[in-house]
Amino acid sequence: MSEPLIELTGITKVLKGQSEPRTILDGVDLTVREGESVAVVGRSGSGKSTLLSVVGLFDRPDAGRYLLAGQDISRLRERRAAKLRSSHFGFVFQRFFLLKHLTAAQNVAMALVNGQGWPRRERRRRVLAALDQVGIAHLAKNRPAKMSGGEQQRVAIARALVRNPRVLLADEPTGALDTETGTLVIDALLGATENGCGLILVTHDRDHAARMGRILDLADGVLTERVPA
């Protein structure tokens, strides 16, 4: 069995600033291994996106332990978190968040431009490889306005893959797409796991969830594994 990439133990997240504090995640335990795909399902407001925020280091847990590739990162400074986000994680959101004034290639390259000074040639090679991986290398010079929703989402996936992340986090990536296009997007995401990349997919779609290796239910802040029928 491959090494665990992500190990969450007793993760708790409480939403403050309202009349009464609300527990969103209540002692969540989760392990994701290399090349493993996991679907997280649950009702709206059940805390799926919050879980993804904690895993993707957008947010800190209030309690619990978070190990990333065996390293405890439960309490991280923002600067270190930003580095880990860029080196270990790839993100795909329900909305594609492509910058309309940039081409597909430039949108993908955005994930490479954060001050580390990648050489131009290496940047171009990685960008084209990522676009090729999701089957849209021929659209590299197109702007988002000239692409379909499925193509735009695949550009977003290429942006998530361009740094060869160890874990891919997808928050309802097919939510804005028709079934057929959604299937193509899930294909692209699963294709990334073949290279050893872990995948956590938050979705409402039972069919897409069923294509993942495991399905986890999140209800009232508690995460439980769904036993295969």
């Binding site: 957008f58 860029s86 993100f91 994930a111 954060n114």
Partner: peptide, 8 residues
């Protein structure tokens, strides 16, 4: 989004 992809 830029912060999400690791931009400091």
């Amino acid at each position: 989004l830029r912060r999400a992809v690791g931009t400091p």
